[in-house]
Design a protein around this nucleic acid. Sequence first.
DNA 1: TCCGGCGATTGATCTGCATCAATAGCACCT
DNA 2: AGGTGCTATTGATGCAGATCAATCGCCGGA
Lengths: 238, 238
Amino acid sequence: MKISVLGEGTHRQSCQDCAARDFAICAALDNTELRELAQLSRHVRFESGATVFAQTNMATSFFSVHEGTLRLYKLLPDSRRQIVGFALPGDFLGLSGLPQHEFSAEAIGRVALCQFSKESFATFAENRPGLLRRIIELAGRELARAQEHMVLLGRRSAEEKIASFLIGWRDRLSGIGRGGEILPLPMKRLDIADHLGLTIETVSRTFSKLERDGVIQIFAGGVVLDVARAEALSGGAS
Amino acid sequence: MKISVLGEGTHRQSCQDCAARDFAICAALDNTELRELAQLSRHVRFESGATVFAQTNMATSFFSVHEGTLRLYKLLPDSRRQIVGFALPGDFLGLSGLPQHEFSAEAIGRVALCQFSKESFATFAENRPGLLRRIIELAGRELARAQEHMVLLGRRSAEEKIASFLIGWRDRLSGIGRGGEILPLPMKRLDIADHLGLTIETVSRTFSKLERDGVIQIFAGGVVLDVARAEALSGGAS
DNA sequence: TCCGGCGATTGATCTGCATCAATAGCACCT
DNA sequence: AGGTGCTATTGATGCAGATCAATCGCCGGA
């Protein structure tokens, strides 16, 4: 059974009926402002595996994810990799505001993004408290997610990591209206390993064990998840 | 040799000459605004070990750290603990904006904070884009720190974790004008362990090893750090 | 149809850190 | 001075997950 990754959005005509509108920074804007912001944005697409920006680059743009999934990662000099998160539709990239990108971003499957030049976006946002508050809201949510992930990385066992990850991923997708019977996992096992502080072998073994124990069923590109059982194995929330 | 932890600030008379002003959200305010905000704030102090707020509490206040150090931590149901960060003068607590606190905050030594009720602060900030942008700046910095810590937790060895932690702690203190020959470590070994995803025994052994190797000298309450050697052992930046 | 490449799985072995256990150092009290 | 409690250190042993290695399944191209 082959599961299609998050559906390909048709290239939208306007921001009004953008599928990501309610999840993105755009939710803070009225239709007039939205048109104005649209003037400042470029719609860009990337093929699977493409680098949207790299950690070493100067950050000249902000991005808002319109469609698809990205891996956001940092590398150590010896090429150990930590995936600090996956970006989904509505996510805003560039929150740190620092002159250099804090991490690299690569497309997992095809992605579509709205790109804003840093200066023009800053000018647009400068005196729009509603938009600034929206950015604070998204940043706060991101920070909370990061802190939760620290608990996972620092204090959970391999099995708890996988179970927690699957539950968290499912909840995130639900939150943007992509919930469903099947939980798509567009990222590879190696991505999951580098996100959870494990090796690919341990991820694979743990998936197999969870399947043997009836917690998940594995398909190409995703799993079916028994949420209650996964929660029981996750070590608990918080 | 006993090293005094971050000095006890005298209770300030006004916000104008607050030692933390340039590092706190207050940096975004002019003197008039500062006086106005001061009206909304309460100065509160906590003894060592006191809980400023707990994860289960509803978040009814924001805090700005004036003096001292706090541990910010999350607990799993079985009481495993992850310290997601240490708060220092200038740090703002409550960035997540969520109705519940995302973590618990405890005083390490005595602390002094400015407390704002959520509503009155929100009203004050609502139409002050400068302050909102300042909050975004602090949140972005916090997020960058969190992502860097994920790399530490997920991908660094015990020795690299300790070396990276010492360097990062030193840099943070320098950034708020608390640099010096001796690096104060007001937190206990167990706090460091729970911050770095290690056990207290591993932290202790690693400190001893670093001292044997001439990377640090250990005193009660702090260390003297050979920065170059520590950097060499840290596994590198990013 | 065969082959090459990539990702995933599974097995065997190794090791870094956890766990279990004992002791030491120090502040504070009586 | 002796006792109590807390934190840190050090040693012995165990194990979860890393590492090394082989195999499998699947897809696309010759």
